[in-house]
Amino acid sequence: MAGSSLQGGPAALSGKRQQFGSRFLNDPARVFHHNAWDNVEWSEEQAAAAERKVQENSIQRVCQEKQVDYEVNAHKYWNDFYKIHENGFFKDRHWLFTEFPELAPSPEQNYLKDVLLESKKSEGPGLETEQHKCSSDCLGHTTQMPPVEENVTQKFSHLEVCAHEFPGSSATYRILEVGCGVGNTVFPILQTNNDPGLFVYCCDFSSTAIELVQTNADYDPSRCFAFVHDLCDEEQSYPMPWNSLDIIILIFVLSAIVPDKMQKAITRLSRLLRPGGMMLLRDYGRYDMAQLRFKKGQCLSGNFYVRGDGTRVYFFTQDELDTLFTTAGLEKVQNLVDRRLQVNRGKQLTMYRVWIQCKYRKPLLCNTS
């Protein structure tokens, strides 16, 4: 068993607000009284059985020729996926604001924005500017640094405010969702968060998915910018400069790329965050029901599989994700396992889901060069 990857439940939350809901199965006889139970504890026998199942379905690997095809034609498989399912496959994720309150406006966010604005006003035309060496993503912009004041510099001494025009450049709070699909996270954010300073970016590997976002009746170009992007392509530029985002969201997307490319992708994304900015993740955990259901011959590499439609998925441990984020220079705020029991009361079936939720922050005092 993968040790800490399956530790969870109420005790693991250190007395803080219960995540993922608060419906606990204390009496096994009541299992079919509800559709789902939260933070379900696994017995040693159940964990051992899950590990055996994974070992069995991982023995036979996909041949190398096929593995190359799944990588080279990944965009085709995802485009086909969205052409088939379009808007009918996913539901809007209104649980987002319970688990990720950072996506909703808060007094703290407004206070910090007011501090910056007042600082700029008081400095007037003499606001110090410095030209810095830009990456290819930065497009040669000029940065403006907040004035040196004791009550501001502790939080913002390295915060860069880009003068270069880019989509959302006038916004005061910027969110990027990577792997946005058809907008089931983006649109609830835009509908719920009416902050006039909010701007939401969203990108996906699939051009079909982005087309569905852009043609959605709720898509507002004045508040949102959707674009096609390959998370693993180091040569492809982002439309916003480094150090410009407050939040980056990754929901069931990191698991879709080759494990060997994950670290560079996360490190590159971390450079887009402002000091103090946060990366939010929710993804598949080791021994999730979906992993146990794979048949022999669908395994690409350890804990990495291909589905019948050609799309791929990886199943994480907490430690793996912690290493990815901390290696990118981010600090842990949250790293939790959500082990949920879902039931089909009509068929009297039980299904165990394992998801991991993470929040990692870019240090306030960092080297932005």
Rank of each mutant, 00 (worst) to 15 (best):
H141T: 14
S270H: 02
G197Q: 05
S222A: 14
P28T: 08
L176V: 01
K295D: 05
D137C: 07
D233G: 06
C358N: 15
V253E: 13
P28Q: 04
V200A: 09
R17G: 07
V200I: 04
R361M: 10
W42M: 15
E65Y: 03
M289R: 11
F294G: 03
L349M: 12
M279P: 04
H34L: 11
A171P: 03
A49F: 00
A171Q: 06
P188I: 01
Q334V: 06
G21N: 06
Q18I: 10
D137P: 08
F100D: 00
F89E: 11
N87G: 12
T326Y: 01
I266A: 09
P147V: 00
K16G: 15
E45S: 12
Y201P: 14
P259C: 00
I266G: 02
G276N: 08
C162W: 12
E234T: 13
P239A: 01
T185Y: 05
N367S: 04
G346E: 15
K53V: 06
G21W: 14
V228R: 12
G9V: 04
N73V: 03
A104V: 01
L365I: 10
T368C: 11
Q348K: 14
F205K: 01
W37T: 04
G197R: 08
G8I: 00
C162T: 01
G9A: 08
F304H: 05
E56L: 10
K362H: 13
V115P: 00
K113Q: 14
A12T: 05
T98R: 08
R271I: 04
Q18G: 04
D288C: 10
I257F: 10
M1W: 09
R271A: 11
L324Q: 00
F24T: 01
L13V: 13
P275H: 01
Y82R: 00
S14K: 13
E108W: 09
C224V: 04
E71P: 00
T317N: 02
T143G: 15
R93A: 14
D92Y: 12
I248C: 08
L281M: 14
K359R: 15
A163H: 07
K120E: 11
C202M: 01
A36Y: 15
T129I: 12
N151F: 10
G297S: 01
I249S: 14
T208Y: 04
L231Y: 02
R268G: 02
A11K: 15
V72Q: 14
F304C: 02
N193F: 07
K113F: 02
S170W: 07
S157P: 06
L300F: 02
I189C: 06
W42T: 10
Q64F: 07
V40N: 10
E123S: 12
Q55E: 10
A209M: 01
D322I: 04
L103K: 08
E45Q: 15
D80C: 07
F100S: 00
G168H: 05
Q318P: 06
I247S: 03
A11T: 12
L324S: 01
F325D: 14
E102C: 03
